[in-house]
Simulated assay, not measured.
Amino acid sequence: MYLQKFDLGGRLALVTGGAQGIGAACADALAEAGARVVIADLDLVAATTKADAMRADGRQAQAVALDVTDSAAVDAVAEALEAEGGVDILINNAGIVQSNMPAENCPDDHWRRHMAVNLDGVFFCARSFGRRMLARGRGSIVNMGSMSGLIVNKPQEQSFYNASKAGVHHLTKSLAAEWAARGVRVNAVAPTVIETELVSRVLKDIPEMERVWLDMTPMGRLGRPDEIASVVLFLASDASSLMTGAIVSADAGYTCW
């Protein structure tokens, strides 16, 4: 009974920013549970490479180019996938962070870029795919928030990123409240710092940041993409059928202190 709740057989899932990092891990988790997965990414070559690798492993996957900041492009992808039965699961994972920018020096375009990708993109995708889910009376949306939407990180200065992720959290709750009675659940994950290529590049330039992060984390380590993907799989599946509007912290205890 209980393991069956994680079975995603027959469902179509779309993962934004799914070509690498946390998004790629989410794609793997959903596919392993039986879903047909669409890797939606700004980098079509990387998305295609990921989809090809998944198919070679016996999974069902396809790639599509998508700029989540372009609402018309989002609508076009959502409409095209209706021919395949429509998206049942949406993972809003696409996001950016370019830290170490003091608020008083933050240019307009730096602020707007983070809001456009991290918050506008989540809304555009939730609105477009959610509208179609509502018409069918079912669907699960999982947004990628951050512990940075709950606390203020240090030592990096990133007010723009923190604000965008706090917006994702409240958008999650707002959509969940609007759509709960109509069969569409909306939840979010709030990860700690995760071992990805992006984080590795940051630590290569500023290695002292890792010491601060680990000192502030009860578990004393960073997270792995598969650990976040496991939470996403739970929220996407019927195993979390009573949950909507939840912000699930997966932060190695970071926000406990």
Rank of each mutant, 00 (worst) to 15 (best):
A229R: 00
T255S: 13
T192V: 09
P155H: 10
A229I: 03
D238Q: 14
V122G: 02
L134H: 07
N92P: 08
E32S: 12
E195F: 05
A63M: 09
S240L: 08
N162H: 13
M243A: 15
A25H: 00
M54I: 07
K50T: 13
R138S: 11
C106R: 06
I22S: 02
A13M: 07
S140R: 08
K204Q: 12
T192H: 09
A94M: 01
V248N: 05
E84A: 15
P225S: 10
R55P: 05
A239W: 01
A56N: 10
R113H: 12
S200R: 15
G21L: 05
N100C: 11
L198K: 11
L8S: 01
I247K: 06
A73V: 06
L66W: 00
M1F: 10
L42C: 01
A25M: 03
N105T: 11
V248D: 01
V74N: 01
V184N: 00
K5Y: 13
T196P: 04
A47C: 11
L242F: 15
V87P: 01
G130E: 00
S146V: 03
D238H: 11
R185C: 07
V117W: 01
A72N: 08
L119A: 07
S237R: 02
K50E: 04
P155C: 08
V186M: 06
S241E: 11
